[in-house]
Design a protein around this nucleic acid. Structure first.
Lengths: 231, 231
DNA sequence: CGCGGCTTTGATGTTCATCAAGTAAAGTGG
DNA sequence: CCACTTTACTTGATGAACATCAAAGCCGCG
């Protein structure tokens, strides 16, 4: 993890408009001063399940996973988060401790804003608060929708779904390097590692995709879509 | 559905403190005037998937189910909601149309508050907004946690879980009448109706519960808990 | 009364988890 | 840098868990 100083500024941040657009100038400036920016390498923890929630955080660049360790020791991945997914809104205002871990799965840059400052601004600025409510709604709707989709699919459908997810939502290209292990895919779509591998191999044999380690090349997107929809 | 007039008042509402406690008196009075209170019988729809979102709503009394109809025609039940579960906070501020249906599963009384009035008050009153943020966080955390729990259990574990849920969370007694059909249980915990019935029968044969139609009597709560935890 | 939906049980087959075993890759300490 | 350990990946075989199909009884409703 690397601390970054004075490189960026909320006023010129590309994503300012999404969240902080209507903030009073003096509040924006206070946010900017209190703001800490950090970089994380793939695999580095940003927060750990059980940590005290002290910051509102915000992904500027990169890719994260949210995961929860269950009582029996098994992991479940709750979601993969991009910039603008506002994953920092999950339970930040209700709980004292994180109920999940957040881990970088690509080089990621995050901003941390002191939570009490955020709450103070919310109390003062209802318009900002409404914006947060809207964003929080969106985050949750997104996560729930994807869960409902995954749940009703068979294993082949789930693998197709997740391949298309990376293809359409994350990398916007048919050839990409998986940011997660086979095991993590299994944890994300509720199946076993062996079956993830098996079905990926099936797709390879059926010439729907090509695989070279982490590298995925989607050859027949339509067919994949069909499997995702039907399965 | 039955409209109720002038029976209740926000000022004296038992649940006022949970949400409207810090509202300015004039705002509370505006909410009270705009407020519509309705009663629903089991099976009645409160909103339907695809309806325009026009109200913030609030369950005073009763029990609801949230469900989503998937593209393939199958239903999935997202959650069972009690009073204070603030189910009205789900996506109300981000979406124009409901992505799920809400149906009464017991005699239920709901308050409807015009959404634009709510938004106006939020914009004005950041403290109220923060309270909503906290509540929204809670709703989502609750739903996600139960999903994660259910997902990692086998079918017997899921049935045990849901029986204990009604026992501990809803009715607070070992003997209760199921508010949902076997089919709905299946939709709630992601299994088939036949298997719901089969496993309930198994539990009956094992003398863990007694069943008379919708009536459930939990005989061996500890054993049920064990099955829920282990499975 | 007949129809459709809910409930129940049994039989059957498929899907998926588990077990086992081996290769490859990546981190670790001397 | 190499031996060593660990973790990720892969394939096959097996059985258990679960879905599906079928059939019949039940109940409420028009």
């Amino acid at each position: 993890m690397k601390l970054i100083r004075d490189i960026n500024d909320c006023k010129t941040c590309a994503y300012k408009s999404y969240l902080f657009s209507n903030l009073q100038p003096e509040d924006l400036s206070r946010v900017n001063i209190s703001r800490i920016e950090k970089e994380f390498l793939p695999g580095e923890h940003i927060v750990r399940q059980g940590d005290k929630i002290a910051s509102f955080m915000y992904l500027r660049k990169g890719l994260l996973k949210l995961s929860r360790e269950m009582e029996d020791g098994k992991n479940q991945i709750i979601s993969i988060a991009r910039p603008l997914d506002f994953i920092g809104l999950l339970s930040v205002f209700s709980e004292s401790y994180y109920h999940f871990s957040i881990t970088a799965i690509e080089n990621s840059t995050l901003c941390f804003i002191d939570l009490s400052l955020m709450k103070e601004i919310i109390r003062k600025d209802g318009i900002f608060a409404l914006k947060l409510l809207e964003n929080m709604s969106n985050v949750n709707e997104m996560i729930m929708s994807s869960w409902l989709s995954i749940n009703e699919k068979n294993l082949r459908g789930r693998i197709a779904y997740i391949l298309l997810f990376f293809c359409n939502e994350i990398y916007h290209t048919e050839e990409y390097s998986l940011p997660v292990s086979r095991k993590e895919i299994a944890e994300l779509i509720h199946m076993r590692t062996e079956n993830v591998i098996r079905i990926l191999s099936e797709f390879r044999k059926d010439k729907i995709i090509e695989i070279e380690g982490k590298l995925i090349r989607v050859l027949e997107k339509d067919k994949l879509q069909q499997i995702a929809d039907f399965g």
